[in-house]
Amino acid sequence: MSFVRAESRMKQGLFTFMLACMAAFPVAVAVAAADLPPLTQGLTQIAEPKPAPALRLVDLDGREHDLADLKGKLVVVNFWATWCPPCRREMPSLESLRTRLDKHGLVVLAVDVGEDADTVFSFSGQLEPAPNFPLLLDQDSKAMQRWKVKGLPTTFVIDPQGRVIYRAVGGREFDSPAMIEALLALTPNH
C-alpha cells in the first residue's frame, strides 16, 4: 500500500469516526436555540368527518394494535419520528393528556415513521414523563401514506364511531387547559 493511499484511508477513517461522533447529537441541536414557533393549543375541525383509514401496526414489543378494536373510545393518533424537533417537543404533553383523560375513555397511539424498535425505545427512555401509550412502528411509511400525512408531526382525533373529526398539522401542546377541555368534551365517559 502506498503512503498516499494509506494516508487517504486514514483520513477517510478519521472522517467516518468524526461523523459517527457527531451523529450522537442530532441536527436539532444546531437549531435548538432558534426562535421556534410556539406549540399550538388548538385543533382543526374536519368539516365532513369520514371513517378513519385502517391502522394495524406492532408496538416496540411486537404486539399488534388495531385501531378498529378501539371503537367506543376517543383515539388520538399521532404520526411522529425521533429526529423531528416539534415531535420531540410535543411528546411529553401527549403523555400528560393520556394521564388526565384515559379514565374518560381517551386512548393515544403514537406511530413512529421509518425507524426501528431500538431507536424508538432508546429515545422514549429520555422523555419525561415517559410515554405509557403504545409506540407503533410504521417502518415502511405505508400507514402514513394511507392517512395522507404530508409532514411530521400530524395528529388526528378519531371519535368513538371511528370517524376522523379533528386534525393537527405541526406541534401541539396537548396538555394545555384549552386542549384538555376540548378533548374531554369528546370522550365517551366525560
Binding site: 399550538t40 388548538g42 423531528c84 424537533p85 411530521l152 398539522v169 405541526g170
Partner: peptide, 11 residues
C-alpha cells in the same frame, strides 16, 4: 406541498 389551517405549521 401542504395545507395549513390557522395554527398549523411544519418544520
Amino acid at each position: 406541498e401542504q395545507e395549513y389551517a390557522v395554527g398549523e405549521w411544519n418544520q
